[in-house]
Design a protein around this nucleic acid. Sequence first.
DNA 1: AAATCTTTTGACAACGCTGTCAATTGAGTT
DNA 2: AACTCAATTGACAGCGTTGTCAAAAGATTT
Lengths: 345, 345
Amino acid sequence: MSKATIDDVARLAGVSIKTVSRVVNREQNVRESTRDRVQRAISELNYRPNLSARNLASLRSHLIVLVYDDPSAYEIPSGGYVIRMQQGVLRACGAADYELLIHPCNYRNRNATDKLHALIDQVRPDGIVLAAPLSNMPRIVKAIADKGTPMVRLSPGKENGGQFTVVTNDREVCAEMTRYLVSLGHKRIAYVTGHPRHKAINNRFQGYKDGLKQSGLPFSEDLVIAGDNSFNSGEAGGDSLLSQENPPTAIFTANDDMAAGVIRAADRRGIDIPGQLSVAGFDDIALARQIYPSLTTIRQPLSQMAEVAAEALISDPGDGSKLKGTSVVPAQLMIRESTGPAPGD
Amino acid sequence: MSKATIDDVARLAGVSIKTVSRVVNREQNVRESTRDRVQRAISELNYRPNLSARNLASLRSHLIVLVYDDPSAYEIPSGGYVIRMQQGVLRACGAADYELLIHPCNYRNRNATDKLHALIDQVRPDGIVLAAPLSNMPRIVKAIADKGTPMVRLSPGKENGGQFTVVTNDREVCAEMTRYLVSLGHKRIAYVTGHPRHKAINNRFQGYKDGLKQSGLPFSEDLVIAGDNSFNSGEAGGDSLLSQENPPTAIFTANDDMAAGVIRAADRRGIDIPGQLSVAGFDDIALARQIYPSLTTIRQPLSQMAEVAAEALISDPGDGSKLKGTSVVPAQLMIRESTGPAPGD
DNA sequence: AAATCTTTTGACAACGCTGTCAATTGAGTT
DNA sequence: AACTCAATTGACAGCGTTGTCAAAAGATTT
């Protein structure tokens, strides 16, 4: 039932509240002996500084906000994505006695920016971690920047809007995946693109093309199908590709959901994976390990990216000195069962 | 760049700050005309009350905390579960201008309760939504209750620890699923149990037994396999059941992950689902709709439960009058492709 | 021992709001 | 018109911190 305040601690330790404040905030110039005395009083009373009072009196709120595309706007919540980012931010918060407030943001909504403004005005967070695809929407970025709240963008591309941005090497790693498929003997490697709204999607497609070029293979429009990131569009794309006269021996998709769709399409046609067809995705969603065959894919280091972002916000002294440039956290190839040597190779 | 304060609004509207406060808090006894004037000033200045100041001055913090078992403690984050609860709480928060703070709690950790206490002391939330399985751990419940913070427990069972509890009818709905399988002609219906730590798991098992009894079918230990909620344990359980001399024609598992494992085991043996084997799970994770055949399962109304919980906390006037008893939100059977008539029926 | 400088400490005013309680206003009565 | 009572409004003191600035205490130099 404790609700010890700084006054209680000061009284018990026989010092002024200001000195207690100094100890709590790890300030310089407190005699070792008094610091000890205060520390003892703090733990005896189980004192914890009230966040609201701190926030009100100082410029730091000890609050980080994670803003991400509202998953409830989709039929199937792509929860894994969000959870992993949350975990990353929470790791950084936990290490620094910060708390995390979450704010799904539906950018399709007219009042999305109003809500962001309201949030910022009301809670005055020390920083905002802005997830993709919002991090690539000028309207959203501007809404936050206008308020002057420190922000870190999580982005799959290299582009930088002036704020500190944590990125992955989507393009490079997709080229790597493509080269890997080539190294298995595949010559006809198809690609299913995703929803062009996501910047990442283009980077991945570029990476696919880079990989072909680097391997000396020709790029062919016939082997590219437009999907929209959904399982269903992957299934449709797979159907379309596999019904060609000269079907591809490998299909690389811009995300795992679509890869799962491709696998289902192949399943229904009795096509063996990876014997007759190799399939690779992107994301490493939980499903990737659970389907049969398990899916070769690319894992975005979402949780590390979010952690790096939150750390930067927390450790910034307030002048933005830690919030400059770009930090690259590399993605990783996850080779599993769905890819294998090209048939007859 | 707005940072209008209540003083600015008061000045512009030509009233005292107290009157502005009254308007903001929708108090009675403000003349219509002054209310209008204040409202106009508020929207002109884009004023939003500072949350910390409110929190400090009043007993309400406009903050809800969602506490759940730390999913990062597992290998495969069971994110869907958490996301859905978050969505429910957020719905209630959005409707009432509340913010959501999330707090994963690793109960295996010695200092889990300390962290909870720290959180409560620091942010003084208006309420805590406590998710299962934490909601059934006396140590955790007590840690929160000791601080006097209003709390609502989300629980799969009927038990009630003295706090307001939002529950599902796990047991009843599992009996219903069992009866449904019987109605399809199945006589040998196996069951894969989950990790006994979760109270829900026992309720589900009881429901399975209830269903058998209600259908006049005998219960047999031979048809029960112990799993641990993981995909792998489901696969192992499936293998074991399907290698019996007289294998079951239907397998009901305590969660979807294990059901997916069973399906994989059947796949590998070339057993057709639902032709030769019906499989039913519990949870309705995203995977359930994505695998082939799609999974018949039971959907917990997690998001509604969380919403009901948060609403109760938000609407409680502070005397706990809204925080009594138990509220049941029924779960729902999701009949899909993985169940069908018993072979030869 | 006095003078100077540095380190350590404390008094007190914010921070932006709500609660309390008293003052003012307006309506209804006599 | 004076009086009563309810509705409306405002003054002011907190809420628990931190920032500012000055005072006190030590350390160093002369």
